[in-house]
Design a protein around this nucleic acid. Sequence first.
DNA 1: TAGGATCGGACCGTT
DNA 2: TCCGATCCTA
Length: 1071
Amino acid sequence: MKFIADLHIHSHYSIATSKQLIPEYLDYWARIKGITVVGSGDFTHPGWLKELKEKLEPAEEGLFRLKEQFRPQAHSLPLPAPTGQTRFMLTAEISNIYKKDGRLRKVHNLIFAPDFETAEKIQSALAQIGNIASDGRPILGLDSRDLLEIALNCSERIFFVPAHIWTPWFSALGAKSGFDSIEACYGDLSDHIYAVETGLSSDPPMNRMCGFLDKYTLISNSDAHSPEKLGREANLFECGLSYSDITETLKGRDGGRFLGTVEFFPQEGKYHYDGHRKCKVCWDPLQTLQNDGRCPVCGKMVTVGVMHRVARLADRDHTEMPDGQPPFYSLIPLKELLSELYRSGPASKKVSEAYLQLIKKTGSEFNVLLHWPLDELSRVANELLVEGLRRMRSGQVRLSEGYDGEFGRIRVFDEKELRSISSQTKLFAPAVKETETAYNGMRHIRFDIAEYRRLFERKRPKQLDLVEVLNEKKEAQRKTHPLLAPLNREQRAAVEYESGPARITAGPGTGKTRVLTTKIAWLIKVKKQEPCHILAVTFTNRAAREMRERLQIMLDSPEQSQALTVTTFHALGFRLLQERIEETRVIIDETEKQRILLRELDCPVEEVKEQAARITRFKQTLTGPEKSGHALYQSYQRFLDAQRLYDMDDLISRPVFMLRESPDFLEQIRERYRRILVDEFQDINEAQYQLLRLLAPPPRPDLFVIGDPNQAIYGFRGASAQFIPRFAEDYPQAAAFTLHQSYRCSQSVLRASHNVVASGPMLKGLQEGVKITIAPQSSDKSEAEFIARRIEQMLGGVRFFSIDSEVSDGQSSEELQSLGDFAVLVRTSRQMRLIEKAFADHSIPWQSAGDELLFHKEPLRSLLDILRFTDQPDHPYLRKKWTSLVGQEPSAMVGELGALPLKERITRIAALFFAREFDGKTDRLEALLQFAGDFSGDVKEFLQAVTLGSSIDAYQPDSDRVALLTLHAAKGLEFKCVFIAGCEDGLLPYALSGTSPADTEEERRLLYVGMTRAQKYLILTHSRRRFLMGRSLRMRRSPFLDAIEKELIDLYKSTYTKSPSKDTGQLNLFG
DNA sequence: TAGGATCGGACCGTT
DNA sequence: TCCGATCCTA
Ligand SMILES: Nc1ncnc2c1ncn2[C@@H]1O[C@H](COP(=O)(O)OP(=O)(O)OP(=O)(O)O)[C@@H](O)[C@H]1O
């Protein structure tokens, strides 16, 4: 018999699907559509499988139908086909996310199963690998090939299909995380693949450009996330009605005929062609190639679409269907067709009524679209519709391809026609008699693939990066000429303020850092100042590095940027000390400092922390040991001197003392650093301020500082925004600038964050933006899981045809293209662990920063002490370290080690003294070695970087990984989408410390800093329970969130509660 | 005297 | 939960 089958759908257990995806509705909608066999979807989900077993009964071999008692009796809706006619076949889709050949792969695969037993076997096999109960389409860290193997082991009769093969992010051949051939994906088991799913984003002619796909049957399914979407693509069979007949027919074996597929127009997809939506540039692959991928309007690389990917893999110069291939039918869903004719929405009443009428008359939607004789239809239907159907059936459509997030448009009439039609009813001659051939293979590929392939071969080397995401650096390079062009008027004024002291105070994202960087370049290039006389001070090495990189691009020669000093306060201080003081000293960290107080100076354990903090305070306020009258401080300082050590605070305070005492040295340094620029001025402390004041004495030095008092978040280390007004007092001649335009945050983000701090001027945002999401969660675990899923889902929004509007809550997130667009911010680095686990479970690549630097923790910490000693074998304190670590007095070995190059030395030390620590677990050692690789053997440089470094220094902005950062570490960064986890009273504001009192205002600013990292999407999560200090605590939502205006908030309601398995034993079984 | 087991306290942010 | 200090054993 002839019948239609839709074999890829989802159940209500899948994420972002309609609650109506239950057997009863599937049965009903399949009949409305005219589908005989519908896939069950999601058989990997225990809850769904249970539901299927409960509601279905066996029909033909391998097929099932709704049990009598679940069939609705008297139905208010029209029931065109006899109830119970729909057949179910067991199907599932699995999202495989894994690394292969060094790249992240995300491939979706379909499995058909012949019976419940097989489905259960597959289910229990997959339960070993990952969580199959949390999503109807489970995400498994499993190679596609291995999934195929597992399925085959469960039953030889399973049927396995690579799903929607061209979807860029989630498919076997996808541009972003797929392969270049089916074989590359499934390896030795490729022979078990008989069919591939073309998906909504491609149709048979596109696939036929790829001869390597000829051997597969091209099938098409709806991938429906709601019952109404059933059959938007489907398969036509002529064979027996059974599982075996269907799968054997797909294998091309005797007995059945595959009559082809019903297709969506792939041109309608948002990323079919290439181009730039904003610049209104839409290109086919050939045009893109001819232009080397560069947009003629803005000069950036265009966004590349699916067609381009197909063209890239094409091995044929034409799109002719090879002989013997089944036909296909490109259709427009009836409601959309009606919607065009009636010029009202597809969900409108008018359209729905007309739709029901037609279904009643003809029996099903497919009858209308495919078979029903038009002359017969014209008796009951509007002539316009008949003409529309005629045109659609014969492929006479007007289409414009989608590109760069813009949907394509498929129309059967043009505007003029529609307008004239609405005024006159009878326009058309009676419907033209259509012929059989009109159905066959309408090709709408409108560029020359042969020419593309020729050109591509010619340009191959240049084209390799075409698909790569735009490179920021190239962009900057292009824009810097002329230097001031990328600045607004306020910013320019600040740059061009030529001499004398000045400050900018302005809010987040107003371009303060950009102004500072541009100013340096401007001073050198336009004002011809010597770079060696310019000093720029930042707070982190990362900020310094970023600024150096920017300047390297902006300046003409590498010599110029080399001559500049861009550094942190601490590195600057250390440099000054080294310059002036002969003896080489070693810098110790906080841990070492406390160890000294405890072990060497007999400070009682319970006092160590407090005493250490007191000493820090003395130093940060420039109170010397004598003046302090503090005995322990005095003996501590004596110890440091005797052992040739500096602690962190010495790096600021000592240079101040030194410069005060040596006027000639001071003069020399002032002469050198004639112009000083300071970023993040709100986070400066007394000692740092005094150092600056010494280097740039009032009244009129060329000192330029920028900051934002609302972003002051380092009060705990003595910093205070009070130094901003203090600066104004000490330098009365200073000019004050401010900036009002935020180039980062949307208006909603700005408003909400402004609500939180309630101070400072309200900035102007670039766009209105979208609402802020507040998502309550039940536990810290589910919070982490929520974040991982949300990221997946938002990136998934990039998937073509996220037409099911439920998927993205009406918020399109198509500009989220890379994992690097996401950041998750936390108050404490402890919170990171669970989130990291969730990322690992979902195979989401991430980078963390904010936790203590790996190199400051054992065993690397001790290893580095040994390394330091080999570099300074006469150092008294390091000598002690060696003796206690190695277990004997230093010997000739020290010299031998010292003679080795850096990396070998590290390896050797590890092998000699840390063999056990690194036994089998060399990842930390490797990290150290890799870091060492950046220093081309300069041991001292390396050691300084290790000592003064922090984990944020290793942050790589363009690495396509989610950033997991503490709020502190996120300062100065920006992301399209920001999550702030743990917005709970007690955590943010933090109030769990016994020692230091809570500073609510600083905590508030911390949240402000976090929120203003977001360009567009901001998601604040909090959980009712949290595991802290070994105990599970009840948490309330952070009171800070209460200040945010209600209309800016989108309160997230969990959709998971619909899964009843949550509170029963199920989770334990699979979690 | 090295290295494992046990115990108890911290409890955040960083150069 | 985790880390370090201390205790304990071979
Ligand atoms: N005139 C401008 N035109 C377009 N974009 C700009 C302009 N000025 C700055 N930007 C962009 O705005 C963003 C924020 O700039 P920047 O990091 O310099 O701000 P900031 O004031 O230092 O922020 P924060 O206070 O959060 O550190 C950056 O992406 C920057 O490239």
